[in-house]
Design a protein around this nucleic acid. Structure first.
Lengths: 337, 337
DNA sequence: TTGTATGCGTTATCAC
DNA sequence: GTGATAACGCATACAA
């Protein structure tokens, strides 16, 4: 198994040229005669040569690898983001390696340090929580860093995010327009800045209409299981809501389970709105009305920013906010007469 | 942003020692006086030093990084595997970077080549399809490689897998024991060797009892959406099945949607069995009877194999098969009288 | 206990 | 068109 790797020196020897010539040939730099080029290429192929990225990186070259750091890969939201980033990067010839932090600050730091030191050309950080100290160290990164969906602590790092506030607001207004007045809410994880934005929008929108009932706010944590429990709690309310807004699609799936479990129909008896528009939202039945982040656009923008920074451009303080949009599907309907 | 990185030379200068002393201190190798050690550590901290993994790797050292290659991150199955691997690796001080191939063979090769050449200490490959040529090149890898859930083409590479065949068999026998005789099946993706194993077990088990009806086999592709459609097809059958075995949990979720959509109850009207035991299987309602791979065990074993190979041990031809086990939950019940 | 010298594989620079 | 040389940052063998 342990097999000495083939280096350009080996290729050079076989082709009867110098290492430099091999390097130039392989990288299409410098002037190489057609004949030599072919000889080198053949030798490289025969030997099964592959570049050593560690060496290239050390020399100051690119690895064509982007590191993406996410808290975990259980929530469909993070896997959707990871997928979108991988696709966007792929289009410009870059790879994405996804690293999970398990929300462990120490590991987070180590992982990022590792990626920064030669392994990756750039970093995409999906920051769920508001960890200022962490961001400060990132600002000194020697490779480009872009934050995705970060809210909260001020930072000079380029950031791409979705407008959670107005998206959530649109969701609540949609329910209001359907005649709902008792609207329940299942929150996201407390430490998530995105969840905070969504809750704030919920309170603001209902509060402005004098319809805010704090007892209709149940605590969630972005998981389906917790959504199920929170849904049950809301249904057990003395005066249950006629519509429930869940802070994430996964949560909404749990709420839907709870409602079906109770023998109630969606949206006839009760409406449900999610947030994220993950893939499954359009696949379940009834299909879920939800708030869509333009995840594809956000990630291709993030990748673009990285590329521009690699080309020397500065994106200090760049903040690109994408509008969220409400996607109305089958899970919402008029309040029961 | 572009900031010259701090090297051991900088630390050495500040601490007033040589580079070697710094290296030894940081790696706890060699004998260093307590006083010097503290001075070096302080200097390193003050400068914000982090090792350059590219340099360390080039020098022959470890990066403490494992590369995991999966086809995609949409299926909960792959994200569960990724999570289990990350946790197992974390316990032994390793990181896992997850790379998706989008089932593109060329990119697959490139990605693996990159990881092999200095970036990763070992490779965990989740091979969905039977790509022999691909495996051959992996056998020549200079870093340890472990295959996860690979079936099909012969290979000398160490492999950790779950016994899909007997797991699927147990699922069918469970349905038989509940009195079901018309049992439908929704296949997985055609190219998946795991899916092939499951289908084979289904056919064998029913065939042996003379209960195999090919018209009750619907084609799926491991997605919920396709599961929904396949479920509808089976329900539209002139003589519909009283139980449906889906080749994956995601597929089963789709089947469940189709059944509920039809106004039928689970398991009263029809039983459903999945395969994978992803997290959501125990979270939906009704909770899903399914076949469980010991994903945690499999991945910690895979990581252990990598570690042993890093220590010089050979695992050529090692094949560790874990039993799958049926997890009976609420989605299956006796055939309706 | 500490330091000097060397090389890992690559590529940019410059000379031929 | 091609090649010799140096340098990236680190860790090892060896010397002091």
């Amino acid at each position: 198994m342990e097999q000495a790797s083939v280096t350009i020196a080996d290729v050079a020897r076989l082709a009867g040229v110098s290492k430099v010539t091999v390097s130039k040939t392989l990288n299409n730099s410098g002037r190489i005669s057609q004949e030599t080029r072919e000889r080198v290429l053949k030798a490289a192929k025969d030997l099964g040569y592959t570049v050593n990225y560690a060496a290239r990186s050390l020399r100051g070259g690119r690895t064509n690898l982007l590191g993406m750091v996410v808290p975990e890969l259980i929530s469909p939201y993070f896997t959707d983001v990871a997928r979108a980033a991988a696709e966007a990067a792929s289009r410009v010839g870059l790879d994405v390696g996804v690293f999970t932090t398990s929300r462990d600050q120490k590991r987070e730091q180590e992982r990022i340090g590792m990626l920064q030191s030669g392994l990756a050309d750039g970093l995409l950080i999906v920051v769920p929580s508001d960890s200022a100290s962490f961001l400060v160290s990132l600002e000194k990164s020697k490779i480009p860093v872009v934050l995705i969906n970060h809210f909260g602590a001020k930072t000079h790092l380029p950031t791409v995010c979705a407008d959670n506030y107005h998206g959530a607001r649109a969701a609540v207004e949609h329910l209001l327009s359907l005649g709902h007045e008792r609207i329940g809410f299942v929150t996201g994880a407390k430490e998530s800045t995105q969840a905070q934005e969504r809750l704030r929008a919920f309170k603001d929108t209902l509060g402005a209409r004098g319809l805010l009932d704090p007892t209709l706010i149940a605590e969630g944590n972005f998981t389906q299981r917790r959504g199920f429990e929170a849904g049950q709690d809301l249904l057990n309310h003395a005066l249950p809501p006629t519509a429930i807004f869940a802070a994430s699609d996964a949560t909404a799936f749990g709420v839907i389970d709870a409602i079906k479990d109770r023998g109630l129909r969606i949206p006839d008896d009760i409406s449900v709105v999610g947030f994220d528009d993950v893939l499954a939202a359009s696949q379940i039945h009834p299909t879920l009305t939800t708030v869509s982040h333009p995840i594809e656009d956000m990630n291709s923008t993030a990748v673009r920013l990285i590329c521009e920074m690699l080309d020397g451009e500065s994106h200090k303080d760049t903040l690109i906010e994408f509008p969220s949009s409400l996607v109305v599907r089958e899970s919402t309907g008029p309040r029961k007469a």
